[in-house]
C-alpha cells in the first residue's frame, strides 16, 4: 500500500477520528447522569452497607464525633432475632404480614377490577361513560391525601365510617352505640384465631377502594381486544354466560392481568403512605410493613446502624420479589403470542 495518495491518507485519518468519536458518544450521553448518581445514589448505597456493620447512632452525627464501632454482623443478627431497642419489634412477623398484606390486597384488586370491567363492558349498558369517569377518581388523588382522609374517616367518635354504619344500622333498628368501632387502635383481633387486628381490615378496605380502578382500566383495555366472535360461537354451542366468562374471558384476560397484578404487588408491598398515615403500623406494630419499619428506625429511634442493616434486608427481599414477579410476567408474555 505504498501508493496511497495524500488524499486517501487524509480520509482514513478522518474516519479514524470519527470512529473514536462514535465510540465515545454513548458515554458522553451517560456521563452526566452517571456522575450525579455516583454521588447521590451509589455512594450513599455503599455508605449504607458500611454503616450496617457499625453501631452508628445519634451520637455519631456530630461532625467532631468519633467514628462508630464496627460490630460486624451484629445488627443483622439483632434484626433477625428481634433484639432491637423498639417495643414489639419482630422482623419475621413484619415480613409475613407484609407478604400477606400484599397478596390479600392484590387478589381483591384483580377480582373486583375484572368484575367491574366485565360489567362495564356489557353491551347496551346505560351511563357507561359516566361510570368510567367516576371510577377513575381514586387513582387521581394522591395516596398521601387518601391515607390521611381515610384515617380521619376511621375515627371512632367523629369518623364517617362509624357514622355511616350507624345510619344504616339505624334503619335496621340497631342502636348507634353498636357502631362505636375503634378501627385503628383496637388490639383484640375481630375474628378469633386469626391474628390480624381490626386495623388490618381498615387498611384492606382503604386499599381496595384505592386499588381496583387501576385493574379495571387494564382489564377494560384487554376486554375490548377480545374478538366478539368467540362469544357468538360459544353461545351458538349453548355455553352459558358464566361458562363463557370462565372459558373465554378469563383466559384471554390473563396476559394483560398478570403483569398488572405483578406491578400491583410491588406497589402494595411498599405502600408506605397508606399504612403510615392510617395506622402508623399500630396497634402494637401489628400492621407494620418493611418500609414503615425502616422509616420508624430512622425517624423515631434514630438507630442508623440498624436502619442501614434493615435497608439491606429490604433491598434483598425486593430484589427477590421483583425477580419472581418479572419471571411470572415474562412467562405470560410468551403465553400471549
Amino acid at each position: 500500500m505504498a501508493t496511497m495518495t495524500q488524499e486517501q491518507a487524509q480520509t482514513t485519518q478522518r474516519t479514524r477520528a470519527t470512529s473514536i468519536w462514535r465510540t465515545l458518544t454513548p458515554y458522553m450521553y451517560v456521563i452526566p447522569a452517571l456522575i450525579i448518581m455516583t454521588v447521590i445514589t451509589y455512594y450513599p448505597m455503599g455508605f449504607n452497607l458500611w454503616m450496617s456493620f457499625t453501631n452508628y447512632g445519634i451520637t455519631n452525627l456530630r461532625l467532631d464525633a468519633p467514628a462508630p464501632d464496627v460490630v460486624g454482623l451484629q445488627n443483622y443478627i439483632n434484626i433477625l432475632t428481634g433484639e432491637v431497642a423498639i417495643p414489639n419489634f419482630n422482623f419475621w412477623y413484619t415480613l409475613f404480614f407484609n407478604l400477606w398484606w400484599t397478596f390479600s390486597n392484590v387478589i381483591f384488586h384483580v377480582a373486583i377490577g375484572i368484575l367491574i370491567a366485565v360489567i362495564l363492558n356489557t353491551q347496551g349498558l346505560w351511563f357507561r361513560g359516566i361510570y368510567r369517569a367516576i371510577f377513575v377518581l381514586p387513582i387521581v388523588i394522591p395516596t398521601l391525601v387518601v391515607g390521611t382522609v381515610w384515617r380521619n374517616m376511621f375515627d371512632a367518635d367523629y369518623g364517617a365510617i362509624n357514622q355511616a354504619l350507624g345510619f344504616f344500622g339505624g334503619i335496621l333498628g340497631l342502636p348507634e352505640a353498636a357502631f362505636h368501632i375503634r378501627w385503628i387502635d383496637q388490639v383484640d383481633p375481630p375474628i378469633p384465631f386469626i391474628p390480624l387486628p381490626l386495623a388490618y381490615f381498615a387498611l384492606l378496605l382503604t386499599n381496595i377502594w384505592l386499588g381496583w380502578p387501576f385493574m379495571t382500566i387494564v382489564a377494560s383495555g384487554a376486554l375490548q381486544s377480545i374478538n366478539k366472535e368467540y362469544y357468538e360461537a360459544a353461545s351458538m354451542d349453548g355455553a352459558s354466560s358464566v361458562r363463557q366468562f370462565f372459558s373465554i374471558t378469563l383466559p384471554l384476560l390473563r396476559p394483560a392481568m398478570i403483569p398488572a397484578a405483578m406491578y400491583g404487588m410491588i406497589i402494595t408491598f411498599n405502600l408506605f403512605n397508606l399504612i403510615y398515615f392510617i395506622t402508623q403500623g399500630g396497634p402494637l406494630r401489628q400492621t407494620e410493613i418493611l418500609v414503615t419499619t425502616a422509616f420508624n428506625l430512622v425517624n423515631a429511634q434514630r438507630l442508623y446502624g440498624i436502619a442501614a442493616a434493615f435497608g439491606v434486608f429490604v433491598m434483598l427481599i425486593l430484589i427477590g420479589l421483583t425477580t419472581i414477579t418479572n419471571r411470572i410476567s415474562k412467562a405470560t408474555e410468551s403465553y400471549d403470542s
Binding site: M37, I40, T41, Y43, P44, M45, F47, N48, M51, Y56, L61, N270, F272, L290, V291, T292, A294, F295, L297, V298, N299, Y304, A307, A308, F310, G311, V314, M315, L318, I319, T322
Partner: peptide, 17 residues
C-alpha cells in the same frame, strides 16, 4: 437495582451523609 429500592430504605445513609 436502585429502582427496586423504595426511597424510605435509603433514608438512613442520605440523612447521615
Amino acid at each position: 437495582v436502585v429502582l427496586m429500592l423504595p426511597s424510605v430504605a435509603s433514608l438512613a445513609p442520605l440523612y447521615v451523609l
